[in-house]
């Protein structure tokens, strides 16, 4: 998974702000009631932010159709630390592969 939770949240909010603004304008165009348009818009905004976030996290778990990074298949339990790298360098020097 290459998208953080924070990024998914921010994208959800920006998308919903635009969507809800459109909803409010449509409700207002049909009803000419400002308070009702605002209420529907706010309710829809909060409900759909939650829906989008859940939808996004579910899709991010589905590998189908995703372009994979060449290193994505690597089964590394944890990133090699600088200490690990120094240890290997020292081993390779001892083995004579480099000086």
């Amino acid at each position: 998974m290459n998208e953080s939770h924070k990024r998914s949240v921010i994208k959800s909010v920006s998308y919903r702000l635009i969507g809800s603004l459109a909803t409010m304008l449509i409700v207002f165009a049909f009803t000419r009631k400002f308070a009702l348009s605002l209420g529907v818009g706010i309710f829809e905004l909060l409900a759909k932010i939650a829906c989008f976030y859940i939808h996004e996290r579910i899709w991010s778990r589905i590998k189908w159709g995703k372009l994979e990074h060449p290193l994505e298949d690597l089964n590394i339990n944890k990133e090699l630390s600088e200490e690990d790298k120094e240890k290997v360098k020292s081993q390779l020097k001892n083995m004579g592969y480099m000086d």
Binding site: P70, D73, L74, V88, K89, L92
Partner: peptide, 10 residues
């Protein structure tokens, strides 16, 4: 960099 297995992943 040491040429670990990552180096050949491509």
């Amino acid at each position: 960099d040491i040429s670990f297995s990552h180096a050949f992943s491509g």
